[in-house]
Amino acid sequence: MRILLQSLALTAAGAAAGLAMNAASPRPARLSEPVRSAAEAAGACKLPGAAGVAPRITVQEATPLCIACSAAFVDARSAVDFAAGHVVGAIHVPPGPVPLQALLHLERFRTVVVYDGDPGSAQAEAVAAALRDRGMTDVRVLAGSWGAWQAAGAPGESGPCATCGTGLTFGGGR
């Protein structure tokens, strides 16, 4: 019985310590906000073979967000394509696990716009889904992708992603 009580005491102490550790985490779980499963998230009911589920945003809607730096832009193409030209201030996040540093950067923005180089936006959809899985709620895919952005003459720049992978200065180039 004594061991059981001590075990419960350890568990209670651990639970309390866990709250402090969460507060100290670079990316804490927000205790005041309910966390829903991916199955209960918006757009979870995707039919096999159906088009992407992320809400679309047009170039005309996204351009003011870029100019005002009020949304984060994510380029889901290859590093070579990214270096050749991308939305001003965009970070490079190809499909796959999203790096923590990218998450820390992106969650400073209410809206995240993801694009790739394919009008079908398959890669952008994959990255948008990964971001939603990581708890981001307002993730949109750029309609028409990079081609539409270029065609509209919206703000672009070139060069490698100075802020990607290093975690040193995310957002510093904006």
């Binding site: 350890l10 651990g14 639970a15 310590a17 866990g18 550790m21 906000e33």
Partner: peptide, 15 residues
């Protein structure tokens, strides 16, 4: 959920 996640990690550390 966020409370349970925090508690699990804390118990792992203490144990």
């Amino acid at each position: 959920v966020p409370w349970a996640a925090s508690a699990v990690v804390g118990v792992e550390v203490v144990v």
